[in-house]
Write a protein that binds this DNA or RNA. Structure first.
Lengths: 213, 213
DNA sequence: CTATGTGAATGCTTTCACAGCA
DNA sequence: TGCTGTGAAAGCATTCACATAG
């Protein structure tokens, strides 16, 4: 297992979702052809992406949906739940705390804010704590991933405290590029960047066509 | 202007943010070197990315911050505000409606839901309407971009209605790959996909190292 | 005979070295 | 002289053709 393109991993997430959907609909067998249609990539791509990690199908037949689903969950680390905490309980942090979408694969185990007026609040039955408590709470509640929902200018200092506290992954909603040691995984999920690209593509339909197909 | 890598446009958004920050701090002159440090890419990359669109600097000197900022805003279409509507006023839609981050470059002009019990609600002084009104409201309020915050299984039908209503860009928060005509720009911003990649990278630090650096 | 898995070819994107200009 | 702007080289990701296994 070597030299996996980073983009392939994003596509694995898509394949997993399609498989979960197929399984929910009672479909037992699929093919690279069917997966490629749903994911809007080529069948070559699907097979190549899977081949980076192993051989999960049967030649001449295809893939068994629950088998491949389990394998992808295993690869992506979604066969277990991950402990998650949110730092920054402003509007965005509060909205995310109440968002039920995390629940399938993640477990919200802590909320933090520097602002003492926020410390009275509680979400999902868990009280918002002072940022000073981060290292202790991360250790006690076995939290692995931290979500940053603070303004851009304090995002880096929050990231530093997360790393010092032993968190191994950061989900960054602030519109800045974080500097972290390479053993810490960071994913930037600020959706306003997406909106910016969108307006560009609306302005430049011809250029977009050239790039996409 | 031809053959711009899609990734370059994402980086342009980052450069713009850095420039806005520099300008706010009163800095008037910068260089590809400085921009590259902040954005965590190489200086070659910064210059190449800019060169796809034109020549905005002065050889031997560098870039004038407000000039380059304006040029990038122009390229990305962020020298004007874009009309935006949200379809799906569940938890996520409501949280987004209250999120102030849109305001700099976008103007929330409409909210829609199929559920009639939601039609009494109002956000930012705008009432939530029936989805049937989408085409009329889009035309009347000159809305260009639609945000999908509905469950995965109704996302495609909402996208179809958005396209029929004349929207030219879609920001998709549902965890599905939308099928749209190529003249419509779609950006997938579901952050749970990011969380999935994150858990993979935590599981596979060695592989991540190979891919990133 | 069918659909997977994969080495090799193609086509992008990034990197580089240096030409071009203040 | 210094830093930008860019054609050419190197490095990656995607596509393809076909060998392989059921």
């Amino acid at each position: 297992m070597a030299k996996v393109p980073s983009a392939a991993i994003s596509r694995l997430v898509t394949y997993l979702r399609i498989l979960e959907d197929l399984e929910a609909r009672g479909v037992n067998r699929t093919s690279s052809e069917q997966l490629s249609e749903e994911a809007q990539v080529t069948a070559f791509q699907v097979r190549k992406d899977l081949s980076y990690f192993g051989s999960y199908g049967t030649r001449g037949v295809g893939y068994t949906v629950p088998v491949l689903r389990r394998e992808l969950q295993q690869i992506l680390g979604l066969n277990r739940r991950w402990g998650l905490c949110i730092v920054g309980m402003g509007r965005l942090g509060q909205a995310l705390a109440d968002y039920p979408g995390f629940d399938e694969h993640f477990d919200l185990r802590g909320f933090f804010d520097i602002d003492p007026t926020k410390h009275g609040l509680s979400f999902r039955g868990i009280a918002v704590e002072a940022l000073e408590n981060l290292p202790r709470v991360v250790a006690e509640r076995r939290i692995e991933i931290g979500l940053i929902a603070v303004p851009a200018d304090s995002a880096q200092s929050v990231a530093n405290r997360m790393i010092d506290s032993g968190l191994r992954g950061i989900l960054n909603f602030a519109p800045v590029v974080l500097e972290v040691p390479k053993e810490v995984a960071v994913e930037n999920v600020d959706f306003l960047a997406g909106l910016s690209r969108l307006s560009f593509f609306i302005l430049n339909p011809r250029l977009r066509e050239e790039m996409i197909g």
